[in-house]
Structures are given as C-alpha cells and as structure tokens.
C-alpha cells in the first residue's frame, strides 16, 4: 500500500491515533498514512517524542506503597507460610 494513494492523515487525527500506533493496533492502511505524515511533519514527530517522554517519566514516578507496618507483616506472613509447609 503506497501512501500517495491514501488520504492524508492531518495532525489533528494523528494525535488521536498515535497510541494505537504505539500498540501496533492500527490497520495497515492507517499505519501507512500515519508514517507518511510523520515523515513530513516535524511538529507531529515532536508530539510523538513528547508522548514517549511522558511514558518514560511515568516509569520512574514514586507511586503509592503499602504502609511499612503492613509490608513487615506480609514479610512475616510469608516466612510463616514457608515454615508451615
């Protein structure tokens, strides 16, 4: 499938399709349209990179944890479980 035969994917559509692109969930047709647009559009390439950056930052976010007492109690429970078998 060649991009020149397909309708262009405008920026406004690309920002809604890019997640499916990352997931490999786009149809072949839309993948070709999206990649053809990216090859031409610096702003959309930047947009894509910002989304990737967002995902990377999320990977190092400090999120909620179990309270230390609860965690200690679970460590003990695991040891007790091991000992009981």
């Amino acid at each position: 499938m060649s991009a020149s035969e397909l309708p262009e994917m405008p920026c406004r559509e690309l920002v809604e399709r890019v997640s499916d692109y990352f997931e490999g969930a786009l149809s072949e047709r839309d993948r070709v349209r999206l990649e053809a647009h990216l090859a031409e559009c610096d702003d959309c390439s930047i947009y894509l990179e910002q989304l990737r950056e967002t995902m990377r930052i999320a990977g190092r976010v400090e999120v909620d944890r179990l309270r230390p007492e609860a965690r200690d109690a679970l460590t003990e429970a695991f040891d007790a479980w091991v000992a009981s078998r």
């Binding site: 405008p10 406004r12 920002v15 890019v18 702003d43």
Partner: peptide
C-alpha cells in the same frame, strides 16, 4: 480530545486543514 481543537487549523482551511495552527512548543 488529546489536544484542544483550537490548536489546529479548521477542517475547511484552504491549505492545511487539521494541521497545527502554531508550531508545537519544544520541551
């Protein structure tokens, strides 16, 4: 909308329908 509609040119723009109205600010 992943990005506010007013960041894009209207769908009936003669030259660049649905494209960024202004360059995307670089981080």
């Amino acid at each position: 909308a992943a990005v506010d509609a007013d960041r894009f040119l209207p769908a009936d723009d003669a030259e660049w329908p649905g494209h960024w109205a202004a360059p995307l600010p670089r981080w």
